[in-house]
C-alpha cells in the first residue's frame, strides 16, 4: 500500500515518499541527540560499572564497587558520608522549593494586582534575575554576608559565628543562595496561573464562610496547580544537582551531591565513581518526582 496516492496538506503524494521526506527532516536533529545525548547516557551507565586505573584512566572491568562505595562500604568498613551528602541534597532541594513556593504566592498575587502597565515592569524585575548568570547571583551574597553588615553582626551577637568573620561558608548561606537563585523559577510559571485565576470561585468560597485556609486550599490551590507544578519541577530538579551555590557558599563544610560529582570529573578524576553518583542523583530525582506526582493527585482529590 506504500505507493497509493494520498492527499496530505494539499499535496498529492504517496505514503512512501511522505515517509522518506519526514525522515529526512528528522534525521539531522535526531542523529545529533542520539550521538551526543542518548549514547553518552548509555555509555555513562556502562562506565559506572567500570574501574578506575591508577592514573584516572578507564579500565573496562566489570565491578559494582562504585555503587558499594556510594552506599558507604569500603575496605575500612561502613561510613555514612556519601549517603549523608545524598540525603542533604534532597533536604536542601526540598526546603529550597518549599520556601520559594511560600514566597512566590504573595509575589505572584501582588504582581497580578498591579495595573497592566506596571505589571510589565514588575515581571521584568523577576525575569532579569531568572536570566542573570548563576555564578554572579551566588557570589553577590558575599557582600550581604560580609562581617561589616548587619546579617553577620546579628549572627555574631547570637553566638553563631566568631566576630569579624563572614556569614559563609555554611548551611545558612547555602539556603539563602539557593532560594534567591531558584525563586524566579517558581514565580514565573505560578504567575501565569494566578493571572488567569477565576475570582468568582474565590468569592463564592468566601460568601459561604469558608475559613481563609479552606479558601486557599479549595479555591486558589486547584486553580493555580498547573503553574505551581511547573514551578516545583523547574526548581526541585536543578536544585538537586546544583553545584555553584554549595561550592561558593557552602565550601567543604556543606557539600552537596553536585560538588561530589564535580570532584570526580575534576580533581579526583574518578569517572566510574562520578558516573555512579550521577546515576544515584538521577534515581533520587525520579523517585522524588514520583512521590510528588502521587501526593499531587491526593491534594487535588482533597
Amino acid at each position: 500500500m506504500k505507493n497509493k496516492n494520498i492527499l496530505w496538506r494539499g499535496e498529492l503524494t504517496t505514503e512512501g515518499s511522505l515517509l522518506r521526506k519526514g525522515l529526512a527532516f528528522l534525521s539531522g536533529g535526531i542523529s545529533w541527540l542520539m550521538i551526543f545525548l542518548v549514547l553518552p547516557g548509555l555509555l555513562f551507565i556502562g562506565v559506572s560499572f567500570a574501574t578506575r586505573g591508577d592514573h584516572g584512566e578507564l579500565i573496562w572491568k566489570f565491578t559494582v564497587e562504585n555503587y558499594q562505595r556510594l552506599a558507604g562500604y569500603s575496605l575500612f568498613g561502613w561510613t555514612p558520608d556519601y549517603l549523608l551528602i545524598l540525603w542533604r541534597s534532597v533536604e536542601v532541594a526540598f526546603v529550597t522549593t518549599l520556601v520559594s513556593v511560600i514566597l512566590a504566592y504573595p509575589l505572584s498575587f501582588f504582581i497580578a494586582s498591579r495595573p497592566a502597565k506596571s505589571r510589565y515592569v514588575w515581571l521584568t524585575l523577576i525575569i532579569v534575575p531568572f536570566w542573570t548568570n548563576m555564578v554572579i547571583r551566588t557570589y553577590a551574597w558575599f557582600y550581604l554576608l560580609s562581617p561589616e553588615l548587619p546579617l553577620a553582626k546579628l549572627a555574631t551577637a547570637l553566638g553563631m559565628i566568631p566576630p569579624d568573620t563572614p556569614l559563609y561558608p555554611n548551611a545558612i548561606a547555602v539556603y539563602l543562595g539557593m532560594v534567591s537563585v531558584f525563586l524566579p523559577f517558581v514565580v514565573l510559571p505560578l504567575y501565569s496561573s494566578v493571572e488567569r485565576l477565576d475570582w468568582a470561585l474565590v468569592e463564592a468560597a468566601q460568601d459561604l464562610y469558608s475559613s481563609k485556609i479552606r479558601v486557599f486550599m479549595q479555591a486558589i490551590l486547584p486553580q493555580t496547580a498547573p503553574g505551581l507544578s511547573v514551578g516545583i519541577i523547574l526548581t526541585f530538579v536543578p536544585a538537586m544537582g546544583t553545584f555553584v551555590v554549595p561550592d561558593l557558599l557552602g565550601g567543604s563544610k556543606y557539600m552537596l551531591v553536585g560538588n561530589l560529582i564535580q570532584q570526580q570529573f575534576g580533581s579526583s578524576r574518578d569517572w566510574p565513581f562520578g558516573a555512579a553518583v550521577s546515576l544515584g542523583l538521577m534515581v533520587l530525582t525520579m523517585i522524588s518526582l514520583q512521590i510528588y506526582n502521587r501526593k499531587g493527585k491526593e491534594i487535588e482529590v482533597l
Binding site: A275, S278, L281
Partner: peptide, 21 residues
C-alpha cells in the same frame, strides 16, 4: 521524549557524560 530529556535532565549529569564521551 527526545525533546524533553535535555530540558529536564540535571545539567551536571549531561556534562559528566559528555566528559566521558
Amino acid at each position: 521524549t527526545m525533546l524533553n530529556i535535555p530540558v529536564v535532565i540535571p545539567d551536571i549529569i549531561m556534562a559528566g557524560s559528555l566528559v566521558v564521551v
